Simulated scan of single mutants.
Amino acid sequence: MKLSWYLPVLLSAGLLACSQSAANGTVVTKNAATSVPAATAPDNKPSFAQYAASLKKEAVERGYSPELVKQVFDSLQHYKSAVVADKKQPEFVETLDTYLPKRVSKQRIALARKFYKEHQAELAAIGRKYEVQPRFIMALWALESSFGKIMGNYAVPSALATLAYDGRREAFFRKEFFLALDILAAGHVKLADMKGSWAGAMGQSQFMPSAFMAYAQDGDGDGHINIWQSRLDAWASMANYLKTEGWDQSLTWGRQVTVPKQFDFSLVIPKGSKDRAQWLEWWSKSERSLTDWQALGVRTATGGDLPKRDIRAAMVMPDDEHGRVYLAYSNYQTLMHWNRSYYFVTSVGYLADLIISEG
């Protein structure tokens, strides 16, 4: 199943663990999962226990095994903290200049370089198979789950059932709930190990169940796809995501540039797109060849000429006219499909560049 437009919205709204909340730079930290008794129903709304009973009835009708149904629904609990997190509005608190040093810290850069060297053979094999540069796999692994160390401690079925019950996006989370049951039914992971963020993002790759169904891969060849405990499965799944969504290994993600005085900022992709389709429409209006950007006075971050390559790029400015300026290549679009946030994409590209730099 291909990710719907809604997942990038979830990502950019900070619904996944360790993810930037939006293109404004708010950082969402992972809260410990806290459960509460079955929610008390306001007005005419059914209780959480009653809602869970409706889910159980549907699970039986869908043909899940009695053992799985009993195991899942005996464990189901309501997470008040997930509801609070879902309704929390992001705040405008950062710029790239303050965000990047924290998100891509010296410690994270050092660890990314260390793991990149230690696992070079494994990463190279995955990179060849999926045609994705290994440094981008490492950068995503570092930023999504802190090298597989921070994956969230919410029971995924309970988190998804909680948010479906909350009702603000019931159809989306109800669908994700049953996809989570599909993953359990296939035997990829045990229920006790199916942990994730408060929004149900799972494992070292922080995939929603729909993303798991669309992109997850058996990277270690053991017959199961375990993005929680197998880094090879997680790496292969992330690489497959990028490749499936159009990654071009002949290109990097983009580059920071400078613009001249009196530059026409109408050429920059506007911020605040309502969905991916609108953002891609704005991209097409901004996109030009490097030769055209050069003629408009755009130069590298150090003031040099742009590469003399037949590449098209759009221009993005995460912090508007007084912030950093980037020429974004087609791989930028793929990263924006993963998380429709300029801050997230910049952090991935920035770290990927640093992994192979000598600094």
Rank of each mutant, 00 (worst) to 15 (best):
A180S: 03
N153L: 05
K175H: 15
A139T: 07
L184H: 02
A164N: 07
G200W: 11
V156I: 15
I183C: 03
G148C: 08
K190V: 10
I150H: 13
A186L: 10
L140Q: 02
L160M: 07
K149Y: 03
E176D: 09
A171P: 09
M151C: 15
L181C: 00
A185H: 11
F177W: 08
H188G: 04
F172I: 10
F147H: 02
A142Y: 01
A186K: 08
P157K: 14
M138E: 04
V189D: 09
I150K: 14
L191P: 07
R169I: 03
G187L: 05
G167K: 05
K129Y: 14
R135G: 04
A171Y: 13
A164G: 11
A139E: 02
Q133C: 11
A159E: 06
D182F: 10
E144K: 03
A155H: 12
A164T: 09
D193A: 11
K190G: 09
L143C: 03
Y165K: 10
G196Y: 01
E144V: 05
E131K: 14
A180N: 06
M151L: 14
F172T: 11
Q204Y: 08
G148F: 09
D182M: 02
A201E: 05
K175Y: 11
Y130C: 10
I137Q: 05
E170T: 14
A192E: 15
R128E: 13
A161N: 11
D193M: 06
R174D: 00
F172A: 10
E176A: 12
P134E: 01
A139P: 06
S145T: 02
R128N: 10
M151V: 13
A199V: 05
R128S: 14
V156D: 02
L160E: 09
Y130K: 14
R128G: 11
K175P: 15
A142C: 00
D193Y: 06
F178D: 05
F173T: 12
I150N: 13
W141V: 08
Q204G: 09
L191K: 08
F173V: 08
A139L: 04
G167S: 04
D166R: 09
E131A: 15
R169V: 06
L143E: 01
E170R: 12
M151E: 15
F136N: 04
E144L: 05
S197W: 04
G196I: 06
D193Q: 12
F178Q: 04
E144N: 03
A201L: 06
Y154V: 11
M202L: 05
F147Y: 08
L181M: 04
Y154D: 01
G152L: 02
G203F: 05
T162R: 06
L163N: 04
E170Q: 13
F173D: 10
A164M: 10
V132F: 12
R174E: 05
R128K: 15
L184I: 12
F172H: 12
D193R: 13
L143H: 00
V156P: 06
F173M: 11
A161D: 07
F177P: 08
F147E: 00
L184C: 06
G196V: 07
F147V: 00
Q133H: 14
G203T: 01
F147A: 07
Q204W: 08
Q133K: 15
K175V: 15
D193H: 10
A155S: 14
S145N: 00
D193K: 13
A186R: 07
A142D: 03
A186M: 12
D182A: 09
F177H: 09
L179Q: 12
G203I: 01
L163D: 06
K195T: 10
A161M: 10
F147P: 00
F147C: 02
K129S: 13
